[in-house]
Design a protein around this nucleic acid. Structure first.
Lengths: 202, 202
DNA sequence: GTCTATAACATGATAGAC
DNA sequence: GTCTATCATGTTATAGAC
């Protein structure tokens, strides 16, 4: 995050906030202008159209969400430590931006073609693939229970991300307030780690 | 699902389809009218306003999503069988309506107050709470590893629901087509069951 | 670069004939 | 009940003064 308060930056930050909360179809250019503390016409002066502005915010969001997944499986720790570190890092990083996953998932569903572009420039998740290969090897060697690495991978991601996506539902159903939810996610780091490692014991 | 093709029903079905795909702010009354094969004015004749129509579709969707969770933990099987059955049932039922979870989650985020109403009339998930109590007991007796039942519960739900919510992302990242994804979710039933039971072994 | 005013269009909702 | 025509409003985008 830059602290340079250039007008372009103010606009992008305002757009990020409004688009993330309300989505493309729910966001109003007036809301973004108000949030940025400038005139509505300025948005068009700097970024031409609502769609152009959205495209920038969305591409950045996809990078944050997916780039993070790959980065988290970087390094060459032993696989157990890698799982623990990845879960810890991912929950921490989403906590800092809890709207991000639902925003991206919703907008992809609205327009799946948008993803195609992202994947052309984007990473092919080399670290993630390497980690899945490693799991397959450990599985073959009998060090861990025989599992489909893809199923395992998606399970780990599900357990980390879904609670954020479903936060208002979960806090409603299980009668948590916001502080209780934060504590729950903090505890969740060690819960998921143990849960996964136990499940993998041969 | 009724087969009575009364106009009211046609409208509700059309509204369900359009709202689920595009959300409240993305849906157009014209789209709903087209989908129902009737005139736009008829929508207002039968349901007064867009908000009224949405309220009906949304309330119904929440019931489908949450009522199902509770129903799935009904019955008095032994807890292991109950876990297996619940996972199997939940994945099957969401497969039949894959847009449902993301729709509900997105709209709750747009307007969390909407949920309050739903919980007043809605169920308090007696079966779910009973099951969590049972887990706590088994945990105390040493029959299963000591775990927080709430963390476990949310993990199970996460692993079943999240792949549907993230379908376009997962199929993109892991290069699956739609058929491959269906097969993946079918295999997932037994994967998640085994995964959870293994993790709970003392 | 920044503002006000306004054009151009989309959309929810209603009036009124049949 | 169903339709066409239209209103009223909201929203993106641009023109033009400063």
């Amino acid at each position: 995050m830059q602290t340079t308060n250039t007008t372009e930056q103010q606009i992008i930050e305002a757009a990020r906030k409004i688009f993330m909360q309300r989505g493309l179809s729910g966001a109003r250019m007036q809301d973004i202008a108000d949030e940025a503390g400038i005139n509505k016409a300025m948005l068009h002066y700097y970024y031409r159209s609502k769609d152009k502005l959205f495209e920038i915010v969305f591409a950045e969001a996809v990078q944050m969400l997916l780039g993070r997944v790959n980065a988290i499986f970087a390094g060459d720790m032993p696989w157990k430590e890698k799982i623990v570190a990845a879960i810890d890092n991912y929950i921490t990083s989403i906590s800092e931006n809890p709207y991000l996953p639902l925003f991206v998932l919703h907008e992809i569903n609205q327009n799946p073609e948008r993803m195609v572009q992202q994947f052309l420039h984007g990473p092919l998740f080399p670290n993630l693939r390497a980690f899945m290969m490693e799991l397959a090897e450990e599985s073959a060697k009998g060090n861990i229970r025989k599992v489909d690495p893809l199923q395992l991978m998606i399970s780990i991601i599900s357990m980390c991300v879904f609670p954020f996506v479903a936060k208002p539902l979960l806090t409603g159903v299980f009668q948590m307030d916001s502080a209780r939810f934060s504590a729950f996610m903090e505890e969740r780091k060690s819960f998921v780690s143990s849960f996964v490692l136990n499940a993998l014991e041969p």
